[in-house]
Design a protein around this nucleic acid. Structure first.
Lengths: 218, 218
DNA sequence: ACAAAAATTGACGGCCCGTCACCAATCTAT
DNA sequence: ATAGATTGGTGACGGGCCGTCAATTTTTGT
C-alpha cells in the first residue's frame, strides 16, 4: 500500500504474488463488511464477490466456501490474541496473576476489537455462530497445558485442568459479550469481576457500585 | 382457550387439527435426524422434507425456513429445562443451594439429553451454532431476575447480576460441552466443579482424583 | 349429499452453487 | 526485446435449492 523508503523491506514479490495477496485481502475485507451487514447465515458467496471487483470463479481460487472465509477471519483474530495471552501467562508468578492477566488481556482485546467481535455474534437474527478453527482450538489447549504446567509446579491445586479451562473460556466469552453490549465498555471492570469470581467465588465479587448492571443490554 | 368440562382431555380434536399436529411433529423429527447427520449448515429444507412423506410446499405451511425449525427444536429443549431450573431456584435457601441446584439440574438434564445437545453443537465441521430464541433468552433473564431478587433479600452480596448471570451461563454450557465429550458422563462431578468454583474460587475446587481430566476429549 | 373452507401437492421462475474451457497477464529463457 | 510457457482471472453453464401458487384433494358444516 505505502512505505516505499526507509523500511527497505523491499518488494521481492513478483507481480503475481502481489495480486494474490491483494485479492485475498480484497475478499476478506468484502466478507467482513457483508457478514456485518447481512449476518453469516444470510450472506452468499455471490454477495461477497459482488462487493469486490473480482469474478465469481476467482473466489474459489482463494476459498472453498463462505465458511472458510469466516474461519480465516476468525483465525486472524485468534492469531492476534494468542501470543498476547501466552506471553502474559508466561510471566505469571501466582494464581492471581495467571487468572487476572488472562482475563484482562482478553477483555482489553475484545474492547478494542468489539466491532469484529459483535459482527461474529450479532449474526442477523438470534442465531449466534462460533467457529472453533484449529487456531482457536490450539489457543484453548495452550491454556489447558499452561494450567497443567502450573499444577505440576505447585502453583495451582491439582484440579481438573480440562474443566478449569472450559470455565475460563466460558466466562471470558460470555462476560465479554455482555460487556460489549453495554453503552460504556469497561474491560477492567469486566476482568476484575471474572478474576474475583475465580479467586474467591461469589462472596468476593466486587460490589456493583455503578449499577449499570441492572438492565444490562445497552 | 379450551376447558369445557372437568377433564376435557378426550380428543375433541378434529381430523384437521390432528394431522396438523402430526405433520409438525413429522417435520421436527425428520429435522432432528437430518441435522444430526449433516449438521445444520449443510442441511437444506429439501433434505428435511425428503425425510418425510410430505410435499415440499407443505413445509412452508409450518415453518418459514430451516432456521425456524432449528429454533423450534431448541425451544422444546428450553421449555423442558426452564421449569426445572426455576422451581429449583425457588426452593433455594442459601447461595450454595441456589448455585449447586442450578448447575446440578442443568448438568443432569444435559447428560440425559446429550444426543440432542451434541447435535446442536457438533455441527458437521468446526462450526458451532447457538440460537438464542425468545424462550432461551427468557430463561437467561429469569436467572438474572432471580439473582437480583436474591440480592434484594440479602442472600447474595450486591454484585453485578448481569455479569454473574453471564458467568453462570458460560460455565454451565462450556463445562457441559466437555462433560458430554468424555467417555463417562458424570453430571454430579461437573456440577460439583462448577459449584465449588462459584462458592470459593479455584482454591476450593475439588481435587482431580480420577484424572480423566488430563486429555479431556474422549 | 353437497358446497364451502382448509390444507396438500408439485411444478415453476429465479437465484446460487461450484466447475471449466477460454483467454489475458506474467514469468522465464534466450 | 521476444516468444513460448505458465499461472491465474473470467463468466457462462448444468444442477440444485428456494419460496410461491394455481390446481387438487380432504375435511367440515349443513
Amino acid at each position: 500500500m505505502d512505505s516505499t523508503l526507509v523500511k527497505p523491506r523491499a518488494e521481492p514479490l513478483g507481480k503475481r504474488e502481489q495480486t494474490k495477496v491483494q485479492n485475498r485481502e480484497l475478499i476478506l475485507d468484502a466478507a467482513r463488511k457483508v457478514f456485518a451487514e447481512l449476518g453469516f447465515g444470510a450472506t452468499t458467496v455471490r454477495d461477497i464477490i459482488r462487493a469486490t471487483p473480482l469474478a465469481s470463479g476467482t473466489f474459489y481460487n482463494y476459498f472453498k466456501s463462505k465458511e472458510e472465509v469466516f474461519q480465516a477471519i476468525q483465525d486472524d483474530v485468534a492469531l492476534a490474541i494468542r501470543p498476547r495471552l501466552r506471553d502474559q501467562r508466561k510471566t505469571a508468578k501466582s494464581v492471581e496473576e495467571f487468572i487476572s492477566g488472562t482475563f484482562l488481556t482478553f477483555m482489553e482485546f475484545v474492547a478494542e476489537d468489539h466491532t469484529n467481535f459483535r459482527t461474529m455474534r450479532h449474526s442477523a437474527d438470534t442465531t449466534r455462530i462460533r467457529v472453533d478453527t484449529p487456531e482457536v482450538v490450539a489457543g484453548f489447549e495452550e491454556l489447558r497445558e499452561d494450567i497443567e504446567k502450573a499444577i505440576q509446579e505447585g502453583l495451582f491445586p491439582p484440579v481438573d485442568a480440562d474443566y478449569l479451562m472450559a470455565a475460563i473460556v466460558g466466562v471470558a466469552f460470555e462476560v465479554a459479550e455482555r460487556m460489549v453490549q453495554r453503552e460504556t465498555r469497561d474491560p477492567v471492570a469486566a476482568a476484575n469481576f471474572a478474576t474475583a469470581l475465580f479467586m474467591g467465588g461469589i462472596r468476593t465479587l466486587p460490589h456493583a457500585d455503578h449499577p449499570a448492571a441492572r438492565t444490562g443490554t445497552a
